[in-house]
């Protein structure tokens, strides 16, 4: 047996153990029962879409608290710092962050830092300060403190666009077992598969977790125009001109008759 095989085996064993442990914990968790559901199975962007509210509800252990995190599809996101050159504000240095969630919402039944330790929050990426943003590319000379400013700037921008929740949402505990919270998806949400993670927390530990997927997609004429514009870009452009041409011609004909 070669060294590399040995190493592989050595690392494989604990990995396997972890997977099994994970599997057991989720199956036992389901036995304990953290049931979560959404009032709608998806978010549909149609002609009249101006944002959508979804109700998330579920049942928990009576002593537990609940944290819900919703993440939109990841994207590599460039952030630029404006600088003043000759009196004009110009886009300067650029830092690209890897896999930034395009949407991020947190809701909890109590303040999250009262519920979980910073280590666990960071590990699970719960909270705007714990997104675990990784730098994909940055100017070589940039100091870590500057990178942190870029991170903060990125989050501020997304909060301003209502894509990230600035203030964590509130989860209402109803009776002994039920909980509910409203999730808001603004009109500028990105399409894709969203992940809704629900954590049941007891005595500073996550005891159970539930992960649900939520599809955000364009429907009807919106979906058709969008995909047509992408897939048949040339034809779409020509059709746009044809529509404009006909509209211009009609306008002239109407104008001539009246004038």
């Amino acid at each position: 047996m070669t060294l590399s095989h040995r190493l592989l085996k050595l690392t494989a064993v604990p990995l396997l153990a972890l997977v099994v442990a994970g599997f057991l914990s989720t199956s036992s968790a389901q036995a304990k029962g953290l049931d979560v559901d959404l009032s709608k199975p998806d978010v549909r962007l149609d002609v009249s879409f101006k944002g959508s509210e979804l109700l998330l509800f579920g049942a928990r252990d009576s002593q537990s608290d609940i944290i819900v995190v919703v993440r939109g599809p990841n994207k590599d996101t460039p952030v630029r710092l404006k600088e003043r050159i000759a009196g004009i504000w110009v886009s300067g240095n650029e830092v690209v962050f890897e896999g930034v969630p395009s949407y991020y919402a947190v809701a909890s039944s109590r303040q999250i830092d009262e519920l979980l330790s910073p280590e666990i929050l960071s590990q699970e990426k719960i909270g705007l300060g714990q997104l675990g943003l990784r730098v994909k590319s940055a100017p070589a000379t940039m100091a870590p403190a500057q990178l942190d400013n870029f991170k903060a700037g990125l989050v501020r921008n997304l909060v301003a666009e209502n894509l990230y929740t600035g203030e964590p949402g509130k989860i209402d505990l109803v009776g002994k077992q039920l909980f509910r919270t409203d999730l808001w998806f603004p009109a500028n949400v990105h399409v894709g598969t969203y992940v809704v993670d629900t954590y049941m927390v007891t005595n500073g530990n996550i005891t159970t977790r539930n992960s649900t997927q939520l599809s955000v997609h364009k429907v009807g004429i919106e979906a058709e125009i969008f995909s047509f514009a992408r897939e048949n870009a040339l034809l779409y452009g020509l059709l746009a001109i044809l529509i404009a041409g006909v509209a211009g011609w009609i306008a002239n004909a109407v104008f001539r008759k009246r004038g």
Binding site: D76, V79, K82, E94, L154, R156
Partner: peptide, 18 residues
């Protein structure tokens, strides 16, 4: 717009695999 100091100095660039 170009010369007054903007409220937010950091901007999110286009692209990002849209």
């Amino acid at each position: 717009d170009l010369t007054l100091t903007p409220d937010e100095l950091y901007t999110i660039g286009a692209g990002g695999g849209e």
